[in-house]
Design a protein around this nucleic acid. Structure first.
Length: 571
RNA sequence: CGGUGAGUGGCGCAGCUUGGUAGCGCACUUGGUUUGGGUCCAAGGGGUCGUAGGUUCAAAUCCUAUCUCACCGACCA
């Protein structure tokens, strides 16, 4: 491709709204343009990358025994009513009407369509297991699209759905897909982790997320420094191996004027936050006799809302009580609450339960207790795991300690079980002639999100550094002042034609631009290999090869540069 | 949906307080200059100042309504 025939669309400046580096670089490098909130046009370079990612995904899916189909973006509402998600999915599901006033949705996912399809096409156990996938546009009407292509409303997703007679077969395919996902991210060259995950609203028992590690990620991933344990912080178990020391002092009521937060109290009393406990009040579930439940955590720990909401008697999703609701129970306001003399159900985090002689609110405004102790000063309480794990915690698998890193979720696989097949009565006849509801698995990859995630992980101050496998072009030819030097023009054209003939993807910068402009553009776009051709090297019949990733430069003779470059691409 | 902020040429912004008929940088066009890391000079094209209404002799500027967008939060693959 010659740049004069191409739409390079590079920019010096990025829009003010682009907050994260991948978004800025995708605009500046001419990969995408925003049309409206959460809606993006893919420019030629961006589309090339997107297609390469899709091709790798497709190849690995095929190798893993999945079969490609393509389902409509627009889906009839009755399918969604049948599965129950017409009511459950909420405003993220974009609903539209056709000219006959019939309801449709823009598909955010395709469980309903695929289940309907399989129900119609598969009627015997002999046809199972079956794994169908597609790579296609999804639409989710996100409350707040952000980070460019990372969380957009319209995006490209690979979604696969497998169907099985029993859970053993589901497990086998699940493991096969797990491996295929690892192959995909390995091939693309990303640093990633498969992590144990909460299956959330999609349902099912077993679930793994695949995260690309990047500081701009929206999820916290906990993993062991000594084993392959990795889990989303949402559900990573917080282990407490320590025992509780015996109480050493009598409980004492002290004045703590204007000390509202744990940090205030710790500073005032000159102690560590770990010696304090904090008490939060959440609403009890409707069937519970209580109105509120007190949750007690060590001062330096954070409440894990997902863990808390799973405890019997607590409202799910979790609802924090406001000050007006707390006052009648405690007779004190926020900032002075604690478990001592509290007439309310108390749930204590494992780590808070092993603190002795702790500091807590006294349920009297402006006062705290010091040297409070469990059992002695608080008789009735229940111990649960209700906090987020933090760096340094012991790993739940018993090996090593926890580290926390940010991750971008690029894949998620689920063992769905019969949630959809049961709702939509999707089954086959078994060997004995009985109708049996199928087991399902579903497996998603955010194809467009991978493009952004790859940039988050691979860039420098000059621009993008694409892994070879997904770069928009493999090689850039940068001729210096070609329009003034027939020798340079001839050498550049010759090298270009030779590489093209070998099937190499080359971007030949034939613009009448100064060298600096071309260098900067090619580095911004992130082409992995460059060939620099200048008049000063013509007398020796050599050109320069430059590697974007390492920055290494090598002088190579014109006769050998094509073979040299092809070798570099292969390496 | 709550909080905050912003809408002025393709992008980044100034002008608004104190109304007087729109400007700067980048990008674009033309000519020249320069040519191994975003040269420099000159000339030029492009904007009903988000939209609607109001005040006024006069509105980008003041008032009202409305729309859109971004960031934080909530929510959510």
């Amino acid at each position: 491709m010659r740049t004069t025939d191409y739409l390079l669309a590079t920019q010096k400046e990025s829009p003010a709204e682009a907050e994260i580096i991948s978004h800025q670089l995708m605009i500046r490098a001419g990969l995408v343009r925003k049309l409206a909130s959460g809606l993006y046009t893919w420019l030629p370079s961006g589309l090339r990358v997107l297609n390469k990612v899709a091709a790798i995904v497709r190849d690995e899916m095929n190798k893993a025994g999945a079969v490609e189909v393509s389902m409509p973006v627009v889906q009839p509402a009755d399918l969604w009513q049948e599965s129950g998600r017409w009511d459950d999915y909420g405003p993220e599901l974009l609903r539209i009407k056709d000219r006959h006033e019939r309801d449709f949705v823009l598909g955010p996912t395709h469980e309903e369509v695929i289940t309907s399809l399989v129900n119609n096409e598969v009627s015997s156990y002999k046809q199972l297991p079956l794994n169908l996938y597609q790579i296609q546009t999804k639409f989710r009407d996100e409350v707040r699209p952000r980070f460019g292509i990372m969380r957009s409303r319209e995006f490209i997703m690979k979604d696969a759905y497998s169907f099985h007679l029993d859970t053993e077969s589901l497990e086998t395919t699940y493991q096969r897909m797990h491996k295929a996902y690892c192959n995909i991210f390995d091939r693309i060259g990303l640093e990633y982790r498969p992590v144990v995950a909460d299956s959330g609203s999609i349902g099912g028992a077993v679930s793994h997320e695949f995260h690309v590690l990047a500081d701009s990620g929206e999820d916290d991933i906990a993993f062991s420094n000594a084993s392959d344990f990795a889990a989303n912080v949402e559900l990573a178990e917080a282990i407490c191996t320590a025992g509780r020391p015996t109480a050493s002092s009598d409980i004492e009521l002290i004045d703590t004027p204007n000390a509202k937060t744990i940090a205030d109290v710790a500073t005032l009393l000159n102690v560590e936050a770990t010696q304090c406990v904090k008490t939060l009040f959440v609403k009890a579930s409707e069937e519970s006799d209580d109105a509120l439940v007190a949750l007690v955590l060590r001062g330096d720990h954070q409440l894990n809302e997902i863990k808390a909401s799973k405890i019997d008697g607590i409202a799910s999703p979790l609802e924090m009580a406001d000050e007006a609701e707390v006052k009648p129970v405690t007779s004190a306001g926020f900032g002075s609450l604690g478990p001592v003399n509290l007439n309310c159900r108390i749930i204590v985090d494992r780590s808070a339960a092993v603190v002795a002689d702790f500091i807590c609110g006294a349920n009297i405004d402006e006062k705290h207790y010091i040297n409070a102790n469990w059992d002695r000063d608080v008789k009735t309480y229940q111990i649960e795991d209700i906090r987020d794990v933090i760096a340094g915690d012991p790993s739940p698998d018993g090996n090593g300690t926890i580290e926390i890193r940010k991750g971008i979720e690029v894949g998620h696989i689920f063992q769905l079980g019969d949630k959809y097949s049961k709702a939509m009565n999707c089954g086959v006849l078994t060997e004995s002639g009985k109708h049996q509801v199928l087991q399902m698995g579903c497996y998603g990859i955010g194809v467009s999100r991978i493009v952004a995630a790859a940039i988050e992980q691979n860039h420098d101050k000059y621009g993008i550094i694409w892994p070879d496998t997904i770069a928009p072009f493999q090689v850039a030819i940068i001729p210096m002042n070609m329009h003034k030097s027939p020798r340079v023009a001839e050498a550049a054209s010759k090298i270009y034609e030779s590489l093209i003939a070998l099937g190499v993807e080359v971007l030949f910068d034939d613009r009448k631009e100064r060298p600096g402009v071309m260098f900067n553009d090619m580095e911004l776009i992130g082409v992995p290999h460059s060939i620099i051709i200048g008049e000063r090297n013509m007398d020796n019949q050599v050109v320069e090869y430059k590697n974007r990733q390492t920055g290494d430069k090598t002088t190579v003779s014109i006769d050998e540069i094509v073979a040299f470059t092809v070798d570099k691409i292969g390496a």
